[in-house]
Design a binder for these strands. Structure first.
Length: 1000
RNA sequence: GGGCCGGUAGCUCAGCCUGGUUGGAGCGUCCGGCUGAUAACCGGAAGGUCGAGAGUUCAAAUCUCUCCCGGCCCA
C-alpha cells in the first residue's frame, strides 16, 4: 500500500472528532500537569479567507501546543476571533455596494450595517473553522472568544477605565489622511493599499520667507502644497547640515549649502555668491515674517507667540532635495504636527469637514484646500516672495476608492497618552524573549518612538468609546459597564431603556445627566481602533481567575507585521492595566511573510494568493506543515512552492510511512510482541549488536537536538535533524545493515530478529513522537494502525504520549564516530568497485584499508559489518600504500587520510556467487512483478538458456539461491525444458539472455 | 524619503555572530550502480569571480564602508 496522506488525514480527523481526543487531552492535562503555560490566541480578523501566510503561524502555534502538551504542560489553547473594525466594514461595504461612509449612513443605516457585519463574520468564520480542521490544529474552538460580544467589550472598557483614572486617556489632535471626495478620514492601512500611490500633477513652488529685523535676508523654501502656507507655523532645518547664505542681487538667501548649485541652476540664476556658511543649529530660533498676517487675522494673533514662526531643528529634514529648508504646517502634516507638539506650538486647523477653510482662515475662508493653491501663489507674488512656480509630476497617495489626492488634516481625536509611560513600556518589552535579534530590534525601536496612541475612529462597527460629554459645560465621564450605563441613563418617559448590545447605533441613544451642571451628556461619537479591541484579549477573554493564572502568557507567535499591531497593543494596554513594567507575554516569536514561488508578495491583483482551503483540498496537511517548518527559519520570508514541497519533504514523510510498513511486514511474520520482547529483554539476552547500539545512540542525539531546537524556535533545524535521522540514519544506513538478517526465516535466528524488532519498535515509535508536533496526522495514523495494534495497552492517542527524553546511558559517541568512519570506508569501496566495473552484489576476495591506527581499531570493531556491506570475504590493514602493487589487479580509491585497495581478481567461486546473486535479483524482480508477497514461498523456479559454463559456476550456490528467492527448489537448464509453465520471462544478464519462470 | 531583512552551484538553503586547511547540503542534469519498505537509495562527473567595489588583516563568504538588485515595514 502506497503512502496516501490525504486518506490518512481524513481517517485521523474522523478518529479525533469521533473520540473527542482534543477534549480528552485538555481535560487530562488540566487535571494532571507538570505546569501551566498561559496562552491567548492572536485572533484572526474575520474579513477574508485564510491564506498560506496565516497557516504558517497557525502551524507554529500548533507545534508548540502539541509539543508542550506532550511534555506534560497544560496550555489553554483556546481560539479567538477578531470581529470588528475597518477591515470588516470595508468588506461589508463592498458586499453592499456602497462607495463611502456618507452613502453608507444614508442608504443603509447603522443598525442594518451592524447586522451585515455580523453576517460577514459568520461567513468567514466557517472558512476558518474548515482551515483549522484541515490543518489539524488542536485549538479548542468550543472556548473561543469573540471581540464583539458584550462581555468582551465590557472587559475591554476596563482598560480604558484604568487609563482614565491615571490620566492617560484624553482628547487631542491627530493628523489623519483625509479624502476630500469621500469626506472621510482613511486609516494608514488604506493609504498603503495597492495602487493608492499615483503619479499626479502638483505645483512646484519656490518662495521666500523674510527674516524679521533684517532688511533683505530670506529663507528659500520649496513646497508642492501651496495651500499649507496658510497654516504655516515654523520653518525647519537639519541641525547638523551646513547652510549657505547666498547673495543674489541685493538679497541674501539661506538654503542648504549642498543644494545651492542645483537650485540656482534650476532657477536659472547664474550670478550668485556664497558669502557665509553656518550650521543648521545656528539658525535655530530665528523669527521670520509670516507673509499673510494681513489677510489671515488668526495668524497675526498666533504670531505674537514666541514659538510661532521661528526656525526649528529637526532630524527629518532632508538636505538632499529642494532647498533643505522645510516649512511646517502642524495642521496638515504628521511630522510637522509632532514637531509642534514637542514645542507646545498650537495646532492651527482652520478646516471644516469638507476640507474647506473656515472663517478662521481670513480671506481664504470658504475655499477648498487644494483650490486655495492658486490664491496662495498670487498672494506671494503680490508680496514679491514668489521665486518660481511650475508643474511637476510625482508619486502621491490618493484615495484607493475615489482617487482624489489625499490631504493630511489634524482632527480632534481621543488618545491614550502612552508616551507618558514609555519608559515602563520599553522596559517591559526588553524583558521579553524574542528568539531572534532582528525582529526584536525592530519591535523595540518602534516602541522607543513612544508616540501617543490615537484610539478613536469615526466609524460604526467597533467598540464604542464609553465617554459621555456634557453639551453645556464640556464635562466628561467614562462609564465602563452596561449595568452602570443603564442605571444612569436618562429616561425620556416611562419606557424602558433598550440596549440590546453595546454597539452603535443603540448605545448612542443613551444620554446622561451632567453631575456638574445638570446639562445633557451625549456619547462622544467615536468607536475604538480595532487594535485596542484585540489588544484587550488577555484580560477581556478570560475571567479574573483565569487572568491571574494564565497572564503573562508563556508564548505567542504572530507575523512580523504584528510588531506594530497586536504585539504593540497587547503591551501598551497591559502596562496601563497593571501599572507594571510587564508585558502580557513572556516570549513572542515574529515570523516572516509567505511569498509565492517566485518570491513575489501575494496579492489579489497578481492572482497569486494561496488560500489554505483549496490548497489542502489537493495537498496533504502534514506535508504543508512539515514543508513550511522545514524550508527556512521562521523569521525569514518564505517562498512557497508546491513543486518543491512534493520533492524532498514528501520523501521524508513517505519514508517514515514505508519504514513502518517494512517493520510491520517483518514483525508480524515473526510474531513480534512488544510487551514480551522489549528492549530490556533483548539487552538482557545479549541480542543487541553494535548496529543497534549505534542506532539507539543516534536516536538520543536526535531527541536532544530536536528538543533543543524547539526551545529556541529553530524549527527548520529541528526538521532537518529529523529528516536526516529518518532518511539517512534509519532508511539509508540501518535498514541495509540488518536487511539480510530479517530476510531469513530460520527459527535459530528468531530471537535475534525479535531483538531487531524491539529496537526498531523503540526507535520508530520515538521518531513518530518527535514528528507529532509537525505531522500530527501521520503520527496518529501510525500510532493507531501499528503501535496500538501490537500493544493495545498503549494510550488512546499519540497525543497522550510523553515527549521523548534522551537517555545518556544509550549515547555512545565513540561508536557513532566508528560508524561514520565505516560509512566513509564503504563509500570508498563502492568508488573502487565503480572504477573497476564490479557490481556491488558481486562478492570480492579482499579489501585492504590504508588508514590511521585509530581508524583501524574502529573498523576492526565493526569488521563483520564492513565485510557484509563491502561484500568482500576479508579485510586487511596496512600503514601505507605498498610501493609496487599491481595496479591492474588492485583498484584504488582514496579520500583524505583514507585509502582503499580492492582486489578485483575473481576466481570461479567468486564469479559463480556473483552470478547467483545476479539471478536472485532477476527472480526477485519477477516475483514482485507477478504480485507475490515477500513472505510467500514458491515451489519451483526454473532458469533456462544458461551457458554450460555459467551452469557449472552457479551450481555450488544453488541452495543459497533458493533461500534468497524463497523457493523450495531452483532448477537450472541449458534450454527451456518442457514443463507446464505459466509463462517464460526473458532477462538480459550481462551478455546472456536468460529465461525464468515461477511455479507457485 | 526613512528603517529592517536578504543577495553563496541551474533551483532551495546552511556557513557569517567568534576571520584560518581544497566554501557545504538537498533538489535538478549527465554517466554508472543498487533495490521485495520507499514517489527512494549509492558512487562519480559537470556546475561558484560567495551581488559589485573599496578598506582592515599575514589571511575575508565571514569584519568595516560605499554602491547595485530584490523583499518587507513605515512615510
Amino acid at each position: 500500500m502506497d503512502y496516501q496522506p490525504k486518506d490518512i488525514e481524513r481517517e485521523v480527523r474522523n478518529f479525533w472528532e469521533k473520540n473527542r481526543i482534543l477534549q480528552l487531552l485538555m481535560k487530562m492535562r488540566e487535571k494532571d500537569n507538570v505546569g501551566v503555560l498561559g496562552f491567548v490566541e492572536g485572533p484572526p480578523t474575520l474579513n477574508g479567507f485564510p491564506h498560506i501566510g496565516h497557516a504558517r503561524g497557525r502551524i507554529m502555534k500548533d507545534l508548540r501546543f502539541r509539543w508542550k502538551t506532550m511534555q506534560g504542560y497544560y496550555v489553554p489553547f483556546w481560539a479567538g476571533w477578531d470581529c470588528q473594525g475597518l477591515p470588516v466594514e470595508l468588506e461589508v461595504e463592498k458586499h453592499l455596494g456602497v462607495k463611502n461612509k456618507r452613502e453608507l449612513l444614508e442608504r443603509v443605516g447603522e443598525g442594518r450595517f451592524v447586522e451585515e457585519c455580523k453576517k460577514v463574520i459568520k461567513k468567514y468564520y466557517e472558512a476558518w473553522l474548515e482551515c483549522d480542521r484541515k490543518l489539524g490544529l488542536f485549538i479548542d474552538h468550543g472556548r473561543a472568544y469573540w471581540t464583539y460580544h458584550d462581555n468582551y467589550i465590557e472587559r475591554e472598557w476596563q482598560y480604558l477605565k484604568r487609563a482614565w483614572e491615571q490620566g492617560l486617556l484624553g482628547e487631542g489632535y491627530y493628523v489623519v489622511a483625509y479624502c476630500p471626495g469621500c469626506q472621510t478620514s482613511l486609516s494608514s492601512a488604506e493609504v498603503g493599499y495597492e495602487g493608492a500611490y499615483r503619479e499626479v500633477e502638483d505645483p512646484s513652488l519656490f518662495f521666500k520667507m523674510k527674516i524679521s529685523m533684517k532688511e533683505n535676508e530670506f529663507f528659500l523654501v520649496w513646497t508642492t502644497m501651496p495651500f499649507t502656507i496658510v497654516t504655516d507655523m515654523m520653518l525647519a532645518v537639519h541641525p547638523e547640515a551646513e547652510y549657505a547664505k547666498v547673495r543674489v542681487g541685493d538679497e541674501v538667501w539661506i538654503l542648504a549649502k549642498q543644494r545651492v548649485e542645483p537650485v540656482m541652476e534650476k532657477l536659472g540664476i547664474e550670478k550668485y555668491e556664497v558669502i557665509e556658511v553656518v550650521s543648521g543649529k545656528e539658525l535655530e530660533g530665528i523669527k521670520y515674517e509670516y507673509p499673510f498676517k494681513d489677510i489671515v487675522p488668526k495668524q497675526k494673533e498666533l504670531d505674537e507667540l514666541s514659538n510661532v514662526h521661528v526656525v526649528v531643528c529637526e532630524d527629518f529634514v532632508d538636505v538632499e532635495t529642494a532647498t533643505g529648508v522645510v516649512h511646517l504646517s502642524p495642521g496638515n502634516g504628521e511630522e510637522d504636527f509632532i514637531a509642534a507638539q514637542k514645542r507646545n506650538v498650537p495646532i492651527y486647523v482652520p478646516f471644516d469637514d469638507e476640507c474647506k477653510f473656515t472663517d478662521e482662515a481670513g480671506e481664504f475662508s470658504g475655499l477648498f484646500a487644494r483650490d486655495a493653491d492658486q490664491k496662495v501663489i498670487e498672494e506671494l507674488k503680490k508680496r514679491g516672495l514668489l521665486v518660481n512656480v511650475e508643474t511637476i509630476l510625482h508619486e502621491y497617495p490618493t484615495c484607493w476608492r475615489s482617487h482624489h489626492k489625499l490631504i493630511w488634516l489634524a482632527r480632534r481625536e481621543y488618545f491614550l497618552w502612552t508616551n507618558k509611560i514609555n519608559s515602563k513600556i520599553v522596559e517591559a518589552a526588553e524583558k521579553v524573549e524574542y528568539f531572534y535579534e532582528p525582529p526584536k530590534n525592530r519591535f523595540l525601536s518602534f516602541l522607543r518612538e513612544g508616540k501617543p496612541w490615537c484610539i478613536s475612529r469615526e466609524r460604526v462597527w467597533g467598540t464604542p468609546l464609553p465617554v459621555w460629554k456634557c453639551e453645556k459645560c464640556g464635562h466628561k465621564v467614562l462609564v465602563a459597564t452596561k449595568k452602570e450605563l443603564l442605571e444612569r441613563a436618562l429616561k425620556s418617559s416611562e419606557e424602558e431603556i433598550e440596549l440590546p448590545e453595546l454597539h452603535k447605533p443603540w448605545i448612542d441613544k443613551i444620554t446622561l445627566k451632567c453631575e456638574k451642571c445638570g446639562g445633557l451628556m451625549k456619547r462622544e461619537p467615536f468607536v475604538l481602533d480595532t487594535w485596542h479591541n484585540s489588544g484587550a484579549s488577555p484580560y477581556a477573554r478570560f475571567t479574573d481567575q483565569e487572568f491571574e493564572k494564565y497572564v503573562p502568557v508563556d508564548f505567542l507567535v504572530e507575523a512580523i507585521d504584528q510588531t506594530r499591531g497586536w504585539a504593540n497593543s497587547l503591551l501598551l494596554e497591559h502596562v496601563i492595566l497593571t501599572g507594571k513594567a510587564e508585558a502580557p507575554y513572556k516570549a513572542f516569536l515574529f515570523y516572516g511573510f509567505v511569498l509565492d514561488a517566485k518570491g513575489r508578495k501575494m496579492s489579489k491583483s497578481l492572482g497569486n494568493v494561496i488560500e489554505v482551503n483549496p490548497l489542502l483540498e489537493k495537498y496533504s496537511a502534514d506535508l504543508c506543515r512539515f514543508y513550511i517548518l522545514w524550508k527556512c527559519s521562521p523569521i525569514d520570508s518564505m517562498n512557497f512552492d508546491v513543486n518543491e514541497m512534493m520533492k524532498r519533504p514528501y520523501q521524508v514523510l513517505s519514508t517514515i510511512y514505508h519504514l513502518h510498513r517494512f517493520f510491520m511486514q517483518n514483525a508480524e511474520y515473526d510474531g513480534f510482541n512488544p510487551q514480551k520482547f522489549s528492549l530490556e529483554w533483548a539487552e538482557k539476552n545479549k541480542l543487541l549488536r553494535q548496529t543497534e547500539y549505534w542506532l539507539l545512540s543516534k536516536l538520543q542525539e536526535t531527541i536532544e537536538e530536536v528538543t533543543k531546537r524547539f526551545e529556541k524556535c529553530e524549527f527548520n533545524f529541528a526538521m532537518s535533524k529529523l529528516e536526516d535521522f529518518v532518511v539517512d540514519v534509519i532508511s539509508r544506513q540501518y535498514i541495509p545493515m540488518i536487511r539480510r538478517e530479517l530476510w531469513s526465516d530460520s527459527p535459530k535466528t528468531l530471537n535475534r530478529r525479535l531483538a531487531i524488532y524491539s529496537t526498531l519498535w523503540h526507535v520508530l515509535k520515538n521518531t513518530i513522537l518527535l514528528f507529532n508536533p509537525a505531522t500530527p496526522f501521520l503520527s496518529e495514523f501510525l500510532y493507531q494502525k501499528l503501535y496500538r495494534q501490537f500493544d493495545p495497552s498503549l494510550p488512546e492517542s499519540v497525543n497522550f504520549e510523553k515527549w521523548p527524553v534522551a537517555d545518556p546511558k544509550l549515547r555512545n559517541i565513540k561508536l557513532e564516530e566508528d560508524f561514520e568512519l565505516l560509512t566513509k570506508c564503504i563509500s570508498l569501496v563502492y568508488s573502487a568497485r565503480q572504477l573497476a566495473g564490479l557490481k556491488r552484489r558481486w562478492p570480492l576476495r579482499k579489501a585492504v584499508l590504508i588508514i590511521p591506527e585509530e581508524a583501524k581499531l574502529s573498523i576492526q570493531n565493526l569488521k563483520s559489518l564492513f565485510l557484509e556491506l563491502a561484500n568482500v570475504k576479508e579485510v586487511e590493514f596496512s600503514e601505507k600504500l605498498p610501493e609496487n602493487y599491481d595496479a591492474k589487479r588492485w583498484s584504488l580509491a582514496s579520500e583524505g587520510e583514507l585509502t582503499v585497495l580492492l582486489d578485483t581478481f575473481r576466481d570461479k567461486s567468486l564469479i559463480g556467487e556473483g552470478l547467483m546473486r545476479d539471478l536472485a535479483r532477476r527472480v526477485q524482480a519477477l516475483r514482485k512483478d507477478l504480485g507475490f508477497v515477500p513472505t510467500e514461498i514458491l515451489s519451483e523456479v526454473h532458469i533456462a538458456n544458461l551457458s554450460k559454463e555459467s551452469l557449472g559456476l552457479i551450481q555450488p550456490f544453488l541452495e543459497e539461491l533458493s533461500e534468497l528467492v524463497r523457493a523450495r527448489k531452483v532448477y537450472l537448464h541449458e534450454e527451456k525444458p518442457e514443463i507446464k509453465a505459466e509463462e517464460w520471462h526473458e532477462f538480459q544478464l550481462d551478455k546472456e539472455k536468460v529465461n525464468i519462470t515461477i511455479i507457485p
